[in-house]
């Protein structure tokens, strides 16, 4: 039964995007429409949550905006407006949801993750 739904969802699967995990620092390039013009806007921050599966998978990116106010943005993974995701830094984290970062005052420090497969 589920196979048919999965078949539909697979049409919207984005294989061009890298895997996003909590703790990663990413730069997401989003298509924005201004009148008739389309431009790309980059949004950079730490992934604090990855939620859902299939076409409904989303991830939340937190950054400290101007005036020191925290901004969180949720991106659907399959959304066609997400043009490109750059992974800037991978951090070693010990939980799946990094909500504690919301309460961190000052600079957020995360341990660098070493890729196991690095030659």
């Amino acid at each position: 039964m589920d196979q048919y739904i999965r078949a539909i969802e697979s049409e919207f699967a984005r294989e061009d995007l890298p895997e996003v995990r909590p703790g990663y620092t990413v730069r997401v390039h989003v298509k924005i429409k201004e009148g008739k013009r389309e431009r790309l806007q980059a949004y950079e921050g730490i992934v604090i949550r990855v939620k859902g599966s299939g076409v409904g998978k989303t991830f939340t990116v937190r950054r400290i905006g101007s005036a020191g106010i925290g901004v969180e943005r949720i991106f659907p993974y399959a959304c066609p407006h997400v043009e490109k995701i750059q992974i800037l830094r991978k951090a070693k984290v010990r939980r799946a949801k990094l909500y504690y970062l919301r309460d961190v005052k000052g600079k957020i420090k995360l341990k660098e993750k070493k890729d196991k497969n690095r030659g």
Binding site: M1, D2, E9, V55, G56, C79, P80, H81
Partner: peptide, 13 residues
């Protein structure tokens, strides 16, 4: 009925 999902069309969900 099989279930529900999301599909994208012309950039809309």
């Amino acid at each position: 009925k099989l279930g529900m999902t999301t599909i994208y069309k012309d950039g809309k969900a």
